[in-house]
Each structure stands twice: as C-alpha cells, then as structure tokens.
Design a protein around this nucleic acid. Structure first.
Lengths: 231, 231
DNA sequence: TAGATTGTTAATCGATTAACAATC
DNA sequence: TAGATTGTTAATCGATTAACAATC
C-alpha cells in the first residue's frame, strides 16, 4: 500500500465514494462537467441523506467520510456544497496540475488524449507516444504523436510523474519499466495485464473486462424472456 | 441488488477476483488474450498460493472463492488450470453469446467497437448507433453506424439484452430510457453520470475519473522529488 | 422552542485471515 | 510414509449500520 505520512492514507473505497459525492454536488449546483474551478458561484447545501440516496449507501457513512477529509456540516441544513467541492478537490489533488505522458496513441489512447474533461481534475497530457511510426506527427487533442525514442527525454526534461499506458498487453511491462526508469511514479494502466513495478510506484489498473464479467453474469442468472412477465 | 434464484447471487468483489484468477491462469497456460476456447490444450496445475500472490490476497480466500463456484482442487498439486478456466467461463457466462448494441460511436465507442478481444468473453456487438448523421454509414469493427431512429427496431428484432452506452453524460439518461423500453436489461455505462433504471435492469458504471482520483491522490501525498532519496 | 440535521460512540455484520484437519 | 496442498471451521478484523447526543 501507499506509505503513510502523518496519518494513514485514505482507502481506495473512500476515494471512490468521495468522487461520487463530488460528482453529485457538481450536478446539483448546476455545474457542467467542464466547469472551471471557481467560475460559477456555488451556493446551497447538500444533506448527508441526499448523498446517501445517490450513492446507494447510508447517511452515517457519508457523514463519516466527509468528517474524515475535514468537511464540517451545519446542523439543520447540511453541508455547504461549496465546501464539499473545495475539500474533495484539495484532498484528491485536483487543483494541482498533473502533467502526464500517454503511451500508445491507438483508438483508446486517442479517445483519452482528445477528451477535454480531464483538465477539470488537474490532468494535463503533455505528450503522446506510439511505436507505430505511421502515427508519428498525428495531432490528437492538441499534442503531436512522437516516436518512442523520445520517451525518456521528455519525461525527465519535464519532470513528468504520471503516465497513461494504452498499449497492447504484451508491450505493457517493457514500457512500464522504461517509464519508471525515467522517473514516473504513477501509471494509469489500460492494458489488460498486471504490471510489476517498484514499491514507490502506484499503478491503477483499469481492467475493463471485469465490468463485462458482471454484466455477463447478470444476463446469465436472469436469462428470462426480454419482456417482463406482467403486462 | 440482483434478485437471487436458487442461492444468493455472487458478489461484485468475488466476480472481480474470479476475473483476475481467470486472466492469470490464461497467461500461465500460454494462452493469448485472443485464444479461442478449447483451441490450445490447457494442461498443468495452479496453486491457491500462486493465485494469492498474483491477486495480492490470501490463499485461503482463493480456495474459498474457487470452492464457491465449484472448482475442486487436488491436494498436493493444486487446481487443474483447465478446470478453473472452464468453471469461471461457465459461471460468468462467457460461453453464451451476448449480443449487444453500442450507442455513441465517438472515439471511445469506436475504440470499444473495434476491439477484437471481447469475442473471447462472449460479447458480440451487432449494431452501432450515433446521433451524429455525419457518422452514419461509417464502418467500425465490421458494423455500420446507424441513425438513432433504428435503435428500438434493431433491439426488439434481434432480442438484444445488452447495451453499451458511450454518449455524452447529458444524453445518457434519455437513451437509457429508450433502451430499457425496447427490452434492454443490462447497460454498460461509460457516460460519467448515474442512470436511473427499473430494478430488473443492471447498470455497470465505468466511472473513469475514479481511477484518476486515486492516482492524483497518490501524486499528492508523495509529492517528493522524482528520484528516490537513496542512491 | 421545536425540529432537522450533524457528529460520534457503540453494536452489528460480513469479509478476511488463522488454524488445523483431510487428502492424495 | 512424509509432505504439500486443499477444504473447512473458528477467530479476527474492519467496515457498515444503529442509536443517540450535540447543535443551530
């Protein structure tokens, strides 16, 4: 796990829930997904009960979570929407700028590279790489695809700490090794294979097939006719 | 939750772990990601300890999980690789064919539509839809993009039960409603918004930002110089 | 004040882990 | 047999929920 530094690090599940609270408050306050921080004045209050309904959990848990990151509510009215947004952003580091390199500018990589919504969360992709020289020079989301040779020099020169890995599974480990060697400490891994990395590096593995497993299982156990029995 | 039918349904976390066991055994037995079921003869054994190391969990948990889905091991040697693959496939329904429609043939939708690996898990995308008439007629992964008008007729005519939703957040709910109305009972939702659906419909929500939150948090609490302190 | 909500401590529940017997 | 592993019951741990006091 992540080494503590003045209090144990927040758990995965809690980070998940914080993200859901954040999204809900954002929506409630009329915030677009692409809202710029501090642009629209956010007023109003949100109660733990509302957040609990949204996240399909319990209001006590919501209050515990918010207390854990230091959001103070007001008895009788709830939590100030603006407070939730501010403290979650601060806790999760969305106000910092996280420069990232993206390796593997295929379809998925291209989709991520051209997605504008990440800026709101502090993610800024500054360079794209691909082993396919055919793609060299393509411009996606404002960045030009570079050849893999440049990987190390770009990472070290810009002090990049985060990498997005969208390459085929069999290339992933070798590229992860190169990235770590160059100074990367966080990898967002979309390749369907686990990576082994030194302990100071964190890998977030987006294993898309897991979602598929869940849906396939549901379809299997509910293998009923498409239309519900009762008219 | 999902309604039970002869024994309670398997939990989300268990399904996740099963998927990881499956992937590990697949790799160990030299299986490519695109291996066709039954093509390569799968021999050899895998122990619960190996699977525990791979999944960063406990060997007792692995044995419990495998017992839960009915895989029997052999004392002294472990579990037959072929058994694990077979039973997981059967449990998760990978051997059934799940026909799906994909709504939203943008970059992400296109990436999913053209990804060949899903066939191994029983997923077969049979139609693509997009509101943008510019995309009508484009061929992605062997399917032609159709206009949204056709959505209901395709779903009902082919008895499709699974839909992949890769549209902007603000369009997602309206499309989910149409899909459910047409007979869809499982939705793989890549839009960054929760969907409200009747209880007989299951939604798997791929909230990509959650992964980002975790990485951003890690970068924040480990805001140290890129190179480790000790040489 | 009365009422609605937060904040916090105690109880419960379930998942994980430990211990050890069973098996080949 | 001895040894390595599975299988299963009991213990532990942590997360969730319940209860209720505190607050405005």
């Amino acid at each position: 796990m992540i080494r503590p530094r003045g209090g144990s690090p927040l758990k995965h599940a809690l980070l998940d829930r914080l993200m859901h609270y954040y999204r809900y408050v954002q929506m409630q306050t009329g915030g677009r997904e692409d809202i710029v921080q501090g642009e629209a004045p956010v007023e109003g209050f949100v109660s733990s009960a509302q957040l609990a309904v949204w996240t399909h959990s319990d209001d006590t848990l919501v209050r515990k979570d918010l207390a854990a990151i230091g959001v103070r509510g007001c008895p009788r009215v709830g939590y100030k929407a603006r407070d939730i947004l501010r403290v979650v952003r601060q806790t999760l580091g969305f106000d910092d700028v996280h420069r990232a390199v993206l390796v593997g500018a295929g379809r998925l990589g291209g989709a991520l590279a051209s997605y504008g919504g990440f800026a709101h969360y502090g993610l800024k992709i500054i360079a794209l790489f691909d082993s396919d020289l055919e793609r060299e020079g393509d411009i996606i989301g404002g960045n030009m695809v570079q050849r893999l040779e440049n990987l190390e020099s770009v990472v070290t020169r810009h002090g990049v700490r985060l990498a997005i890995l969208t390459v085929p599974a069999e290339e992933a480990q070798a590229l992860a090794d190169r990235l770590v060697q160059a100074g990367i400490v966080a990898i967002w891994n979309f390749a369907s294979t686990r990576l082994s990395v030194p302990s100071h590096v964190v890998v977030r593995h987006e294993l898309i097939f897991v979602g598929l497993a869940e849906l396939a299982y549901h379809l299997k156990i509910n293998n009923t006719p498409a239309r519900p029995p009762k008219p």
